[in-house]
Simulated assay, not measured.
Amino acid sequence: MSDLIPNFKQPTADIATGGQPSLDQLARVSDYGFRSILNLRPATENAGLDEHAEVVRLGMKYHHLPVAMANDLTRSAAAELGRILGDKANLPILVHCGSGNRVGALFALRAAWIDGASTEDAINIGQQYGLTKMEDDVRRILTK
């Protein structure tokens, strides 16, 4: 699927991450057996499609956890990510934002805050899930 989703990564068998999928790409995600989509893009980032309706039409579950900027990378957002991923009925899942960067940032924070990873281990985990330009933000947040 790496040719389908922008910046696609699949660090585990049940969790894939990346940038915004198109309608056709959502259909292919469904064809690959994914049960859920978690969209981190806020409503102000209109992707030009009704993703919620399309995901439901394709028979998948739709989850929305808006993360617009570093200020939205909170403990409650990390906990919500953990809750969604902890429900086996949601797996396999595709977690996306515009590029995948916010996805990786939230996974890094989840690793630190929920799983107890060190800052360096959390950054490495975040990078596996798509963390790039927000690495400095994640480090700053973790040192508060």
Rank of each mutant, 00 (worst) to 15 (best):
E54Q: 13
P21V: 08
L40V: 03
R139Y: 09
D31A: 15
C97A: 01
W113G: 05
V56W: 05
G19I: 01
V95I: 15
P66S: 07
E51G: 02
F8S: 06
Y129H: 15
M69K: 15
L26Y: 04
I123V: 14
S2V: 12
R75C: 04
M60R: 10
T12A: 08
S22N: 06
N71D: 14
A89M: 02
P6Y: 05
F107G: 04
M60F: 09
N124C: 01
M60P: 10
V138Q: 09
L40P: 05
D31P: 00
A108P: 11
T44C: 09
R28C: 10
L106G: 00
S76R: 14
R75V: 12
D137M: 02
G116E: 08
T44D: 13
A77Y: 01
L109Y: 05
A122G: 03
V29K: 02
D137K: 02
G104A: 11
I84W: 04
T119A: 14
A89P: 00
P66V: 10
Q25D: 14
R140I: 05
A111M: 11
A27I: 05
I84Y: 07
E51N: 04
L106R: 03
A68M: 09
P21S: 10
L26P: 03
G126V: 09
K88C: 03
A111T: 11
P42W: 03
D31F: 09
R28V: 14
R57N: 13
L58A: 02
H96N: 08
S99L: 14
L23V: 15
G100T: 10
Y129M: 12
I114A: 12
G48V: 07
K61D: 14
D121L: 07
L49H: 13
I37L: 06
